[in-house]
């Protein structure tokens, strides 16, 4: 998906969070958004998704103003917080995935994604019995299950332990290799193992930088 952000300025009331941000994300790009807590990373994502109504600046998806954009089903989104979800009513992981899929996804893919995320054994557990990190992974699987053309992940590894972060990275890299456009928000240092192509750095002083990743020597052995 082609994303064009033109002169985006966003404020909550009088508090300006994003100032005059312009950038283009090409189909297949893998953009990492970095920056300290409170630098506006989640705010930017919410602007892209139309959750925050943008009054200053324009955002285009595939040349279409997002205010008129219709194909939201092509986007997978994993929010940073899941406050919106009703946890108290019993529903299993498997049930959540089955009601929130768009297509007839092969069962095998669902199982593979659950396995990749290390939550295969929790498939029939009720969501309210899982830990925060497990819940987060359920929502990552949910977003991936719908074959998105654009995947937006807001600090998906924040409450995932080390071993499972590995699985997660592999999965994201695989999707990138398959041509999915990815925007991944992260305030961690260790981005090296991700095959990201661009980095957007946000700064609490409303400065920002957007640059392509410096070319690196290939990490795989060339046999």
């Amino acid at each position: 998906m082609l994303i064009d952000i033109n002169n985006l300025t966003f404020a909550y009331g009088h508090k300006v969070v994003l100032h005059d941000l312009s950038l283009t994300i090409k189909p297949g790009d893998f953009v990492v958004v970095s920056g300290k807590n409170g630098s506006g990373k989640s705010t930017l994502v919410k602007c892209l998704l139309g959750i925050n109504a943008v009054s200053n600046g324009v955002i285009f998806f595939n040349h279409e103003d997002i205010n008129y954009f219709k194909k939201w089903t092509e986007i997978g989104y994993v929010p940073q917080k899941f406050d919106d979800f009703n946890y108290e009513f019993p529903i299993t992981v498997s049930e959540i995935l089955s009601v929130s899929k768009l297509h007839k996804t092969p069962e095998a893919l669902k199982l593979k994604l659950l396995d990749d995320m290390g939550i295969l054994e929790n498939m029939n557990d009720s969501i309210n019995s899982l830990s925060g990190g497990q819940i987060q992974r359920v929502f990552v699987v949910r977003a991936m299950l719908n074959h998105p053309r654009l995947l937006i992940l807001d600090e998906p590894t924040a409450s995932i332990d080390r071993k499972n972060v590995e699985y997660f990275r592999k999965t994201v890299n695989r999707l990138h290799a398959e041509g999915v456009t990815i925007i991944l928000i992260s305030h961690e240092q260790s981005l090296d193992e991700l095959d990201y192509t661009h980095e957007l750095h946000l700064d609490p002083n409303l400065e920002h930088t957007y640059k392509a990743r410096p070319v690196q020597p290939p990490t795989e052995d060339i046999a």
Binding site: L49, G50, I51, W72, T73, I75, G76, Y77, P79, D84, F85, N86, F89, I91, E95, I96, S98, V99, S100, K101, L102, N146
Partner: peptide, 19 residues
Amino acid sequence: FFRQIISVSFEEGNAKFLG
């Protein structure tokens, strides 16, 4: 409409991404 009813009921915000 079971799929739609349940997913929207549990999480309104997700409705958009399911069309």
